[in-house]
Simulated scan of single mutants.
Amino acid sequence: MGYKTNEMGYPTDLLASRAVIERGNFAIIPPNGLVKNVLPGFDNCEMTILATPKLGATFVDYVCNVLPGGKNDQGFGGNGIETFIYVMTGELTVSVGQETFSLAAGGYVYCPPTEKLRFVNHSSVATETFLYKKKYQPAEGYEPYVVSGNSNEVEGEAYEGMTDVNFKNLLPTDLNFDMNFHILAFDTGGSHGYIETHYQEHGALLLSGEGMYNLDNNWVPVKKGDYIFMGAYNLQACYSVGRNAPLSYLYSKDCNRDVEL
């Protein structure tokens, strides 16, 4: 186990962190202080665990840095667990059953709960990915299926009529799926139209930019590389304040299902 940012030795300043952890409610987790984990099945992979049930989430998020030759041929998910992988940098070959996908930056694959997701890095450089898993909530008459694409080729739309906020759906919006992944991008000065309060949870990884995020009426600075967990009913909204890039993030959302008792 080592640190994700490869920092070692004594600090050059006071010991401090931008992390904010409110279990079951929300969390801001910057890269500094995160550790690399060794997990069964992930060979030559640097695994960083983000949201988990211990934090209050009903899903698990990871950042997986797949080193050259790194792979998971044991399989990730299956047996009722749906999975999703998104390539942030590099290249990766992903397979689900008999289907194989060659992913570049922005590429992704959704794997239904009846299958396992496998991957290998055939390139000479590390590939950084975002991984997700969740227990699938079935609905009578519906079955999820494999989906692959690249976010750079997904047509965005003005978010709730705001032309400086771009919204992308990465998965189909039909009832076969109990969740979706989106990318939301705010130009500088862009914001949500209101502070949201809802039942759905989010796990969000910031892909670019800087901003101020409202989490349970706490305004917190965030930037590229940060991870945000937003629990059910957590108040949430943001402003983009970065000069050089939009504030954009990849995030999951549970949807299309009634509440189980």
Rank of each mutant, 00 (worst) to 15 (best):
V146H: 03
E140R: 14
A104W: 00
A105Q: 09
K133Y: 10
S124N: 15
L131M: 13
E115T: 06
N121K: 03
A105V: 08
T129R: 01
L117W: 05
A139M: 14
T114D: 13
F130V: 11
T114G: 11
Y136R: 04
V120E: 14
G106E: 01
F130M: 03
Y142W: 06
F130W: 12
T127P: 05
Y136V: 09
Y136K: 06
N121E: 05
S124A: 15
T129A: 03
K116L: 06
P144Y: 06
P113I: 09
A104K: 13
Y108S: 02
K134I: 10
F130H: 07
K134L: 07
G107W: 05
R118Y: 12
F119T: 11
Q137M: 13
K135A: 14
V120D: 07
T129I: 04
A126S: 15
E143T: 15
K116A: 14
T127K: 01
K116W: 07
Q137V: 14
T127I: 02
P112L: 10
R118L: 14
A139R: 14
E140A: 15
K134G: 06
Y108W: 01
S123F: 01
L117I: 02
H122W: 08
Y142C: 00
T114S: 12
Y108N: 00
A105M: 04
L131Q: 08
V120Q: 13
T129D: 01
T127D: 01
E128H: 09
A139Q: 15
N121A: 00
L131P: 05
Y142I: 00
Q137D: 11
H122A: 10
S123W: 03
L131D: 09
Q137F: 13
G141P: 08
T129W: 02
P113M: 05
P144L: 08
V146N: 03
P144Q: 06
V109E: 00
T114F: 09
L131H: 11
A105I: 02
E140K: 15
P138K: 04
A105K: 09
S123D: 06
K133N: 12
K133F: 12
Y136N: 11
P113R: 04
Y132L: 11
Y132M: 13
G106V: 04
G141R: 07
E140Q: 15
C111R: 10
K134E: 03
R118W: 04
